[in-house]
């Protein structure tokens, strides 16, 4: 179960995330978005005979793994990492339709591994920045549908501004929030005790969850979710 993959995650997630859900993981840089997702996937894969695919557009495999190791997160054999470095060096961006290509990458791994059940994309922002912007709303709708059709529990990482104003997301990303089954926000809060990282579940369809911001820390055993921050 995904809610048991990180120490303390069951404090904010009372039921498990339904299989095949598409979850947005948002937050500013340095808020542990990649670490949270990779850690959940790696721990889930190590406890289950299933496969996962982590697609990174932001970093190459080596630097991603270096970052994960520095957070105490280990690599798992069944967790496949795909980066676009070679493809983007050999082809011009105009020759690549990265949304369609990502769907094909998923299909290729799904063909190879029947029990591929988890998927992550790091990040949606990078995918947008190198994609043709025409009909983007419809492309994103189709991409989300593809993930659901493949019955993949998916984590889409999206970098966003640190704070939301009156609970509203910036209009440029409303579509994703509307389409997603869940949104996990990561952030930083400065208080009397210094700067603390937090995790908050803003939305999770068909799942009971806490609404409060909880502190998230890096311990020598990986990520750890503590009690409410207030």
């Amino acid at each position: 179960m995904l809610k048991n993959t990180i120490s303390g995650l069951d404090k904010i997630l009372f039921d498990d995330i339904p299989k095949g859900s598409v979850i947005l993981v948002t937050g500013a840089e340095g808020t542990l978005k990649s670490g949270l997702v990779f850690s959940m996937m790696a721990n889930y894969i190590s406890a289950n005979d299933e496969h996962g695919l982590y697609v990174t557009l932001e970093q190459n495999i080596e630097s991603h793994l270096r970052n994960m190791n520095s957070l105490g997160i280990r690599e798992e054999r069944g967790l496949h990492i795909f980066d676009y470095r070679d493809m983007r060096l050999e082809w011009m961006d105009s020759e690549l339709d990265l949304i369609k290509t990502t769907e094909e990458v998923i299909d290729s791994y799904k063909e190879k591994y029947d029990n591929l059940t988890l998927f992550a994309l790091d990040s949606l922002n990078a995918l947008y920045s190198i994609s043709d912007q025409e009909n983007m709303r419809s492309k994103i709708y189709n991409f989300f549908s593809h993930l659901r059709d493949e019955e993949l529990t998916s984590f889409l990482i999206m970098e966003s501004a640190q704070s939301r104003i009156s609970g509203q997301f910036s209009s440029s990303h409303q579509v994703e929030h509307f389409l997603a089954d869940g949104t996990i926000e990561l952030g930083m809060i400065e208080g009397s005790g210094g700067v603390k990282r937090y995790i908050q579940i803003l939305k999770m369809r068909a799942t009971k969850h806490a609404m409060e911001k909880h502190q998230i820390i890096i311990s020598d055993k990986g990520l750890n979710i503590l009690g409410p921050i207030y």
């Binding site: 496949h80 795909f82 070679d86 493809m87 082809w91 690549l96 369609k100 290509t101 990502t102 769907e103 094909e104 990458v105 299909d107 290729s108 791994y109 190879k112």
Partner: peptide
């Protein structure tokens, strides 16, 4: 297509 070749190579 690229999305079908590179995953096989990896």
């Amino acid at each position: 297509s690229q999305g079908t070749v590179y995953p096989v190579l990896y």
